[in-house]
C-alpha cells in the first residue's frame, strides 16, 4: 500500500470571478428590482387613494394647518370668495370643502395640501397683474385638491417609508407619523409633472368658463418667472416639480387653439384693498 498527498489543483472550492464584477451585477439587480417594485407601488397607491374619504384627509391635516402661521383677514376672505367662485366652475365634488390661507411672506409661492387647504403667499399675490392670473393660480391649486394629489403624495410617502423600513429593518412603528412629521405639509408639495399638467388644463378651462376668455391667465407663467428672477432670495418652490414654464404656456396655447377660446379680453383688476395691502 502506498501513502502520498498529491497536490490538489486550486479553484475547486473557490471561484476566480472578480469580486467587483459580482458587485456590479448585484447592485444592478437591486436597482432594477427597486425600480420595478417602486413603479408597482406608485400604481397601487394611486388606485387605492380614491378609497380614502375626504373627511379623513381633513382630520390628518388639521394639526399641521394650525401650526403654520397664516393671517385671517380681508385678504383671506377675498381669496376664500375667489376660491368658492372658481370651485363651482371646476365642478368640485360637494363633499370637498376649501379653506384659503394667506401668508404674509415675500415668497412667490402657493400650494395646496391635505384636507382642501390652500396657502397663498404675499409674494405671489404681489406678482399678479390681474384677478384673471390670480384666479388661474387658485384654480390650479383647487384642481390638485379635486384630483386628490396631496393624499396620493402622502400615500406614496407612507408606502415608501414602509418599503424602506422593511429593507433596512428600521422600527415599523408610527411610519405614517414619520412621513407626515418630516417637513410637515411641505413634503406634500411634490406632485408629478403629469399631475401638474392635468391641474393646468382643468384650471385654464375653469378660467375660460368664468371670464369668457383666457387673457391674463395664459401669460401667468412668464410673469411668475419674471417675479422669481426679481426676488433672488425666494426659493423657486412653485416651479420646482412643475413642467418648464415655456412648455406649460405652449400646452395652454394648444388647448386654447383646440377649443377656439378667446385669448384676448378685458382683464379684471385685483380689488384696490388687496393691491394696497400686498404692496405695503
Amino acid at each position: 500500500m502506498q501513502y502520498e498527498n498529491p497536490e490538489i489543483p486550486e479553484g475547486i472550492n473557490t471561484s476566480n470571478e472578480h469580486p467587483l464584477k459580482e458587485l456590479v451585477w448585484l447592485l444592478g439587480g437591486v436597482v432594477l428590482v427597486s425600480v420595478i417594485v417602486g413603479l408597482f407601488l406608485v400604481f397601487a397607491t394611486n388606485l387605492s387613494i380614491a378609497l380614502v374619504p375626504f373627511s379623513y384627509e381633513q382630520e390628518i391635516a388639521a394639526p399641521f394647518v394650525a401650526e403654520l402661521e397664516h393671517e385671517e383677514g380681508e385678504i383671506s376672505a377675498y381669496l376664500q370668495a375667489l376660491a368658492e367662485d372658481m370651485s363651482t366652475w371646476l365642478d368640485l365634488p360637494s363633499d370637498m370643502s376649501l379653506q384659503m390661507h394667506y401668508i404674509d411672506e415675500e415668497t412667490v409661492n402657493a400650494f395646496a395640501t391635505l384636507g382642501g387647504h390652500i396657502f397663498i403667499y404675499r409674494g405671489l399675490v404681489q406678482a399678479m397683474p390681474s384677478e384673471n392670473a390670480l384666479a388661474m393660480v387658485v384654480a390650479h391649486e383647487i384642481a390638485h385638491i379635486k384630483q386628490r394629489d396631496p393624499i396620493a403624495s402622502l400615500g406614496r410617502g407612507v408606502v415608501f417609508m414602509i418599503a424602506w423600513s422593511l429593507v433596512t429593518g428600521a422600527s415599523g412603528s408610527d411610519i405614517g407619523g414619520q412621513a407626515l412629521g418630516q417637513g410637515g405639509l411641505l413634503t406634500l408639495l411634490s406632485f408629478s409633472r403629469d399631475q401638474e399638467r392635468a391641474a393646468d388644463q382643468e384650471a385654464i378651462k375653469a378660467v375660460e368658463q368664468r371670464y369668457g376668455h383666457i387673457a391674463g391667465a395664459s401669460a401667468l407663467f412668464e410673469q411668475l418667472e419674471k417675479a422669481q428672477q426679481g426676488s433672488a432670495d425666494a426659493v423657486p418652490q412653485f416651479f420646482s416639480s412643475h413642467p418648464l414654464n415655456e412648455d406649460r404656456s405652449v400646452d395652454i396655447e394648444q388647448l386654447a387653439d383646440a377649443h377656439a377660446w378667446q385669448t384676448a379680453g378685458e382683464l379684471t383688476p385685483l380689488p384696490g384693498f388687496v393691491s394696497r395691502r400686498v404692496a405695503e
Partner: peptide
Amino acid sequence: QVIKHLGLVQGST
C-alpha cells in the same frame, strides 16, 4: 483493496 492512499479531499460551498 486500497492500493494507494491519496490523503484529504474537501468540498465546501
